[in-house]
Design a binder for these strands. Structure first.
Length: 852
DNA sequence: GAGCATCGGGG
DNA sequence: GTGTACGATGCTC
């Protein structure tokens, strides 16, 4: 054991003197409870003396990192009985429940009876407290089949989240605790708390952000293997701090490069740097999925503990389809996850590589270095390593800048939803909505609804419903397009029509029911009592309106307010999808159906009116209408919009999105939730706005990818359809004539498991088998490159290793039909071109149908 | 057409 | 840890 274990006992007087609000002095006598104010960042709990104790970590107002230990919180769940007369008997019985498993005992500690709201009904509910958090599901399981129970709820709320909600503590927001001395093994100053509560709306000023990134050996082999390949360097970037640590020495003028003896020393230094820098936020790009798992694997090899938690705990791995890594006390934010889940909609880029994302958000990309050379340089040319250190540092710098720039957005979501930055940064919209609702349950005295059982999820998935209305555009190019949008269409419908599970088909309004315009007219919503969810949506909309007013009035740009407005908008817009999401607690397909029915109703009304007034309707989708001015002026369009708005109820509003001199519309594929948007517009400033074209994935060949890009550029930028057509014809002809180099027809596909484990063999598996036969080592994680060669038989038998394929010996038809044409067919379809036009007249053969 | 597999990000 | 992904698309059978 060569690391220092620090046991700290604090002397209060010295610590508090100039730090805290202090009402502890009474008549010159010091009482030993004092107040500490801090911004919570993260929390965990430990079992101490058979009791769950909360550890709340944060940055105190004086800049120190602190840990507040709160013993005053117990796990519980809710029970609602069929008959309220049975409560006494139930309470007597449940308080005796004990479940013994091995050494552990799960027991009921006490019960409390309270009046609560449950799906629009007032009920007497029993709050059942358990000895430990993990006892909650055990006790629930033991009693769930008891006869007098109608429902058991809130038995699966993680203990730390329950704590934040019930205590009304919002991370990153000024919190005050009454504390006294506490002695515990900790990296930060720790206190025992008596009272913990939110002190004000104040937010943490400037959290200490530290970004890191690693580079590993073996990047040229197309395989990431943390068991074999060492970490070569690790970089850090923070405010006034930059460092690259590596273990091969070379001459360098960079003072930020530090040399250590080997990979094990690198890992030790990694830990030391974090402990010394004391970040509030540790960030990386894909650090959940790459850097931290890789570090963990390498650390295990040397039996090094990655015990960087404030409580000396190891970093925690949540394994599963998506990995996540948490560090007790430090908010670990994987910028990739946050950007892809929350920011993505606002971005133009289709790929979320660090380079693409940074270029768009920061206007600065990665350093251009040929990473294929890293291993070779490392082994043979140490004098050239420096450039890779620069590259490594740049990656940390980008992650740092992304985190700083997007922190306001994360912070606002944290403050609205009320969970830790770690949790919030990993949530998708449905989760954000759900936990926002959960956070509001105490104020509305609501019992939360339950997550669906596995069987229910299956049933819910089967249920479909009519989606949005789509006015299908006629394929082609159009001039002078005015675009209108309903502002927050679905949220405004939910509020205006009081749509929620607890107002659905209520008994009180049966006689005066106003049915939602679904086909069967079977759903109506309460006219008298505001529903729980519509009340929440209304509050969100009103809050946002207030904030937008402030933004409009203020002359300076306020990033925080803009982020808050954006967060509220995103949240409101997600409620509808949440109601129809199979995994939702407050799932209600009836509500979701009603929302879309009203949506269709209003867009139909708008289209009818537009046509009546002589506009040509080009396209409409969900909440937007594209009109061709058809000789009319832009002002006429705006007047039309104002007329519509006079007729709309309540908060609903049609807005003017913009004017476009030209646009191309693409027939869209239908799905359960309506048609996908697919169009490209030319804006007044000459820029091209593309919506809905498929992502180019790595298992597309270069020839397909390049052709798609070129065609869009030519049609939209140069407005020369024939030139675009000629371009595709040339690519197809080149493929036929084998003039396209093999390099451009290579397809890359990753092996996700060992080749023996495949039941269905894709082409890459067949190739991998053949590689193995040749003595090349293959395994899970490796990316297989292959070319589909000409010949007969199924695709996988014709997939070959690129080295084995003679130049031009690829299957032209495959690349034309399965790669190039799918990449551009929809574009040409809307221009009215036919397959023959693309492939060249007369040469019809085995080509698949162009129009599908 | 059902069902299985893979994509993403990272080096 | 009182929990965990997701939505789209291509290939095989």
């Amino acid at each position: 054991m060569d690391f220092k274990e620090i046991y700290k006992v604090y002397l209060f007087f010295s610590f508090f003197t100039n730090t805290f609000l202090n009402d502890g002095f009474l008549g010159g006598v010091m009482v030993d409870k004092v107040k500490v104010q801090f911004y919570p960042l993260d929390l965990t709990y430990h079992i101490i003396n058979d009791k769950a104790v909360i550890y709340l970590f944060g940055r105190a107002v004086d800049g120190r990192q602190v840990c507040i230990v709160d013993e005053d919180f117990e796990p519980y769940f809710w029970v609602v009985l069929k008959n309220e007369e049975d409560i006494e008997e139930f309470v007597r019985k449940v308080e005796k429940v004990k479940v013994e498993e091995k050494k552990d005992v799960a027991s009921v500690v006490k019960t409390v009876v309270e009046r609560k709201n449950f799906i629009g009904e007032e009920v007497k509910a029993v709050k059942v407290f358990c000895n430990l958090p993990k006892s909650v599901p055990v006790i629930r399981e033991a009693i769930k089949d008891w006869d007098f129970i109608r429902t058991i709820n809130e038995f699966d709320i993680p203990f730390t989240r329950r704590y934040l909600i019930d205590k009304g503590i919002i991370p990153l927001t000024l919190t005050e605790a009454e504390v006294s001395a506490y002695s515990v093994k900790s990296r930060v100053d720790t206190f025992k708390a008596y009272k913990v509560k939110q002190a004000s709306e104040d937010s943490i000023k400037e959290p200490r952000i530290l970004a890191f990134d690693i580079e590993t050996y073996g990047s040229d082999k197309g395989r990431i293997d943390s068991k074999k390949n060492p970490i070569l360097m690790v970089s850090f970037y923070g405010e006034n701090f930059r460092k690259v640590i590596t273990w091969k020495k070379f001459k360098t003028g960079h003072d930020y490069i530090e040399f250590v003896e080997g990979e094990d020393q690198l890992i030790e230094r990694f830990k030391e740097v974090i402990n010394m820098q004391k970040p509030d936020i540790l960030t990386g790009y894909f650090s959940d999925g790459f850097d931290l798992p890789y570090l963990h694997e390498r650390a295990e090899k040397y039996k090094i503990k990655l015990d960087i938690g404030h409580d000396f705990s190891n970093i925690n791995f949540k394994r599963g389809l998506s990995e996540a890594v948490s560090i007790n006390g430090i908010a670990h934010i994987d910028m990739f996850k946050f950007i892809r889940r929350v920011i993505a909609r606002r971005l133009e880029t289709d790929t979320y590589s660090l380079d693409a994302v940074s270029k768009e958000i920061l206007g600065e990309g990665k350093m251009k270095v040929d990473m294929d050379n890293l291993s070779d340089v490392w082994d043979n040319k140490p004098e050239e390593i420096e450039q890779f250190c620069e590259y490594n540092l740049q990656d940390s710098l980008l992650a740092y800048k992304l985190c700083v720039k997007l922190f306001p957005n994360l912070e606002e979501l944290v403050k609205i939803v009320g969970l830790t930055p770690y949790d919030i940064s990993r949530m998708g919209f449905s989760q954000l909505v759900e936990w926002f609702i959960m956070r509001q349950t105490p104020e509305f005295n609501e019992i939360a609804m339950n997550n669906p059982h596995h069987d229910d999820v299956g049933k819910r998935r089967m249920q479909t419903y009519a989606g949005a209305f789509v006015y299908q555009p006629k394929p082609g190019l159009y001039k002078d397009i005015a675009v209108f949008d309903f502002r927050s269409l679905y949220p405004s419908i939910i509020v205006s029509h009081n749509i929620g599970p607890d107002t659905l088909n209520c008994k009180c309004c049966k006689d005066k029911a106003e049915y939602a315009p679904t086909d069967k007219k079977e759903y109506y919503f309460c006219k008298d009592k505001k529903g729980f969810l519509p009340s929440l949506v209304k509050e969100i909309i009103e809050r946002r309106t207030r904030i937008k007013d402030i933004i409009k009035k203020s002359k300076t740009k306020n990033l925080l307010l803009e982020a808050r407005s954006e967060a509220l908008k995103v949240l409101a817009n997600s409620f509808y999808g949440y109601l129809g999401f199979f995994g939702a607690r407050w799932y209600s397909i009836e509500c979701a159906r009603s929302v879309t029915a009203y949506g269709r109703y209003y867009i139909h009304k708008t289209i009818e009116k537009a046509e009546k007034e002589g506009f040509k309707v080009l396209y409409g989708d969900t909440d937007s209408v594209f009109l061709s001015l058809d000789g009319k002026k832009e002002e006429d369009g705006i007047r039309f919009m104002e007329e519509i708005n006079e007729e709309l109820p309540g908060v609903m509003e049609l807005e003017y999105e913009g004017f476009y001199p030209a646009g191309i519309f693409v027939a869209a594929k239908m799905s359960a939730f309506g048609a996908k948007k697919k169009y490209a517009l030319l804006a007044k400033d000459g820029s091209i706005k593309v919506t809905g074209f498929e992502l180019v994935r790595r298992n597309w060949s270069l020839v397909a990818k390049e052709t798609q890009e070129d065609v869009l550029k030519i049609i939209l930028g140069e407005k020369d359809n024939d030139k675009a057509l000629q371009h595709v014809q040339k690519v197809i002809k080149d493929l036929r004539d084998k003039k396209v180099s093999n390099e451009k027809v290579i397809i890359h596909t990753q092996l996700t498991k060992e080749i023996g484990d495949y039941e269905n063999k894709g082409p890459h598996v067949a190739v991998a088998e053949r590689m193995k036969g040749k003595g090349i080592e293959v395994g899970a994680g490796m990316v297989i490159d292959y070319i589909i060669t000409s010949g007969k038989g199924i695709i996988r038998d014709r997939a070959k290793i690129p080295d084995e394929v003679n130049e031009g010996d690829y299957d032209s038809d495959y690349y034309i039909n399965n790669q190039v044409i799918p990449a551009i067919d929809k574009i040409f379809e809307v221009l009215g071109f036919k397959e023959e036009d693309l492939v060249g007249g007369g040469e019809q053969s085995k080509l698949g149908k162009f129009f599908k």
